[in-house]
């Protein structure tokens, strides 16, 4: 094999020749732009990057990336990505999915890809609505959400994507937001670096069918008062003037004002390795709590393909590289 000289890549190398067809103002544009921006920085050759999606608005993503890509069928992207990761463990594989694709029709595949720790990065664009089918409630829609299919309000308990991923023993779980572009880029880079399944929930705005879903937390000016940014080893401080924090009161997190009765020393210190803390953080929901943004959990475990290839190598070492004649004659034979 010839040695390939890595190309100096820039954002435009990742822009495909296809016209982007999302609605004007859709949050997907920002995610696409950040992705194209960070990929030249992750140290992976363009030909080693693959985007796999299912069905839904978010799933058009691969068409707009000038990498290898597949726009597959509803909910099944994690299965395709798993097969691809096993066939070629050296690829950087990204699954782009939504709350309907990933949590409804494809919920089963999502948890199994995560539990196997397949080396893929799963981006779940959560807008809490079905967009491509024109506005039905989704598995993450809040109770009471009024849509065409729930005119009197949804009566279903929504799923929390983060707790689901954690329950499936995800080794990397993070959350970010379409409009928070710098943070989005950082989280994508952290996911790219993680070996094993990286699960990222991206709060994403559907301007047509659910435009006010993230009201209160998506405004750039007031956001810092309404979300808490996580940093490993740092206390959970938030607010425009860093004047608020989260402490534990028994098993319950509690928002406290700093400077009076409480100081930073009373606050939870973020630990990306703690499964217990990860569950507490993942359950902090707006508006009672500032939802956490950033890497909630990041631990290292062997990824699926690495485990499989280890077995291949071990078997070849032990038994030698497979020989057909020996295989055919295994067991009882007789000669006529």
């Amino acid at each position: 094999m010839t040695t390939t000289i890595p190309l100096e890549l820039s954002k435009k190398d990742f822009v495909s020749d296809q016209t982007v067809r999302w609605c004007p103002g859709c949050g997907d544009y920002a995610i696409l732009a950040q992705m194209q921006k960070i990929l030249p920085e992750i140290g992976v050759a363009k030909e080693d990057i693959v985007f796999i999606s299912g069905i839904g608005c978010s799933s058009r993503f691969p068409y707009y990336m000038n990498t290898y890509g597949m726009h597959s069928i509803h909910g099944r992207a994690p299965t395709i990505a798993s097969g691809l990761a096993v066939a070629n463990p050296d690829l950087s594989i990204w699954v782009v999915t939504g709350d309907g694709d990933g949590l409804s029709i494809g919920g089963n595949h999502l948890i199994h890809a995560i539990r196997r720790n397949v080396n893929v990065n799963i981006l779940l664009f959560n807008n809490r609505i079905y967009g491509l089918t024109k506005g039905q409630y989704s598995p993450t829609s809040r109770q009471g959400t009024r849509t065409k299919s729930s005119p009197m309000g949804s009566i279903e308990q929504p799923l929390n994507p983060l707790t689901l991923a954690l329950a499936a023993e995800a080794t990397f779980v993070a959350r970010t937001m379409d409009v928070d572009t710098k943070h989005l880029g950082e989280v994508l880079k952290a996911a790219a670096e993680h070996k094993g399944t990286s699960f990222i929930e991206i709060y994403q705005n559907c301007v047509i069918f659910n435009p006010n879903e993230w009201a209160g937390i998506d405004d750039r000016k007031t956001r810092s008062d309404h979300v808490v940014y996580l940093e490993h080893g740092k206390p959970l401080v938030f607010g425009k003037n860093n004047d608020k924090g989260i402490r534990l009161n028994g098993f319950k997190p509690e928002v406290v004002e700093l400077g009076g009765k409480f100081t930073e020393a009373d606050l939870i210190v973020h630990d990306e390795s703690s499964q217990e803390l990860a569950f507490i953080l993942a359950h902090m929901e707006h508006p009672i709590y500032p939802p956490p943004m950033g890497v909630i959990r990041n631990v290292t475990k062997q990824d699926y393909s690495a485990g499989l290839m280890e077995q291949v190598e071990a078997a070849q070492k032990q038994k030698g590289v497979g020989d057909l004649a020996t295989l055919y004659s295994a067991g009882e034979t007789w000669t006529v």
Partner: peptide, 14 residues
């Protein structure tokens, strides 16, 4: 379904 999906992915991967 996942089995079939995985096969598609593996075929795409060569």
């Amino acid at each position: 379904i996942a089995a079939m999906g995985s096969v598609i992915g593996a075929a795409f991967g060569g």
